[in-house]
Design a protein around this nucleic acid. Sequence first.
DNA 1: GGTAGGTGTTCGACAATGTCGACCGATGGA
DNA 2: TCCATCGGTCGACATTGTCGAACACCTACC
Lengths: 254, 254
Amino acid sequence: MARNIQSLERAAAMLRLLGGGERRLGLSDIASSLGLAKGTAHGILRTLQQEGFVEQDDASGRYQLGAELLRLGTTYLDVHELRARALVWTDDLARSSGESVHLGVLHLQGVLIVHHVFRPDDSRQVLEIGAMQPLHSTALGKVLSAYDPVAHSEVLEGERKAFTERTVCTLDDFEGVLDITRARGYAADVEETWEGVASIAAPIHDRRRMPVGAVGITGAVERLCREGELRPELIAAVRDCARAVSRDLGAVRF
Amino acid sequence: MARNIQSLERAAAMLRLLGGGERRLGLSDIASSLGLAKGTAHGILRTLQQEGFVEQDDASGRYQLGAELLRLGTTYLDVHELRARALVWTDDLARSSGESVHLGVLHLQGVLIVHHVFRPDDSRQVLEIGAMQPLHSTALGKVLSAYDPVAHSEVLEGERKAFTERTVCTLDDFEGVLDITRARGYAADVEETWEGVASIAAPIHDRRRMPVGAVGITGAVERLCREGELRPELIAAVRDCARAVSRDLGAVRF
DNA sequence: GGTAGGTGTTCGACAATGTCGACCGATGGA
DNA sequence: TCCATCGGTCGACATTGTCGAACACCTACC
C-alpha cells in the first residue's frame, strides 16, 4: 500500500474542480471531467456533501463548495505560526508606510496570501487573504523564487504569463532578476502584474535560516516610486519588518 | 452502495480533529482518537498531505491543517451568492451605523460568519470571517433560530451554554425570545454572549421567502443602547439593510 | 400533449481497493 | 545505556469502493 488512497485523491480533485472553474457544476460534468462513472462520482459527492465540504443547490441540483471549507480554512490561519508572529509587525509596517501589507507563503505554483492589512485610509478595499499571486511577476513571488529552492523549480517549470508589457517572461532575464533579488535582499514589482501598481517585498527566515514566507507592501506606482526609483525609506521599512518577523520566529522554540 | 464512502468520512473526521483540538497532533494520537490502526491513519494522512489539506512539521513529524483549505475556503466565499449581493449593502450599514457588520449563515450547530465589515474607525480589529457564533445567545443566531426550521431544531437539541449571567438558557424562555423575534422582525443580544457587547440582527430571505441568512451590527452596549433601550434608528438601519439584500436576492434569477 | 434528451439517483455484482496488525529504524527521556 | 514511544513500512486478507445499467424526474421542444 505504498500508493495513495484513490477515493481521497478523486475527492480532492473534485473540490479543486469545483473551486477552480465555474460557479456550479452538475454531476455529469464532474464525472466526465474526471473520467469517472456517474455512480462513482455521486458516491463521493454525497459523502462530501454530508461532511459539509460540498453543497447542493436544491433547485438545479448542481454542486458547489461547502461552508466547512471556510471554517477549516480560517482555522488553518489560527494555527499558522508565521502569521501569528507577523500580525503586530505587519500592522506597524502598514502604518509607517501608508500602504497595504501582504504576507505570503509558497503554495503549489504560486504565493498564497495568509495575511493582509488594509492601507490605512478610508478607501474601499477587498480582502485578499486566501488568494493566490503568481510567482514570476509579483514582489512576494520573486522573493520566494529567489530564496526557496522549491519555489524556484516551480517557477521554472510553470508558464510565465505576461500580464503587462513590463512582465519579465524569458528564462534568462528572470534568472537575472532573481540574482539581483538575492544580491539586494529584496524584490520589487513595478507594473509587472497590474498596471499602475507596484510592490516591494523581503524574505522571512525561520531559526534555521530557511525561507518560510515573504512580506511586502503594495500600492499605486506614483506613491511607491519617486523620479522613477523606488523610495528608499519604503524599502527599508519592508526589510525591517521582514527582519523583525524572522527574529521573532528564531527566538521561539516549540 | 447506499452508504457513504468510509475513507472519506475518516479523512473528514481527521480534518475536523486537526481543526478542533490542539495546534498539532501526532500520528498515534490521531489514530487512537478515531479508533484506527496506525497504518490506516497514515495512509489517509499521506494522501491528505499530498493534496495540500494537511501539512507535516518536519522537525516533530506532527500534522496540522494545510494551506489548500484556506485557498478553497476563500473560493467558497467568491461563489457565495448571498455574500456577493450583500457586499455593498453591508458597507452602507457600517457607515450609517458606525458599528461593525456581520453577515452569517447557518452551519452545523452555529452561525458561520461569511462577511465582516470593520467598524469605521482606526481601532485595531480582528477579522471574523470563517468564525462560528452560537445560535442561542447572539442576535444573528436568534434570527436564524426564529426563521429557519433547521436552525430551530439544532438549537433545541444542542446545549445552550451560559456565557454571561444574562444568557437565556431555559427552553421556555428561549422559545419566548424566538416568538418576540418573529413578532418584531429582528433580534437583539444585550450582553448575553460577551460582557459589554450588544448586537442587533435581522433576517434575509430569498425569492421564495426562505430564510438564507442574517445580517447585524455589533458594538459596545453603551453605543447601541440609550437609557436601557436599543436605539431605534440602529434597529431601522439593520432592518433596512436586510430588506435591501433580500430584495436584491429576489430580483435575480440564475 | 407527448416525446426526446437531459438531469441526479439507486442498485447489484465484481474485484480492485483500503484496512489491519506486526514489524522496522530513529528518536528522546530517564 | 536502556526502554518506551514515535512515525513509517509491508504483505495478506476481505471489506470496500467501483462500475455500468436501469430508475424516476424534470425541462424544453417539436
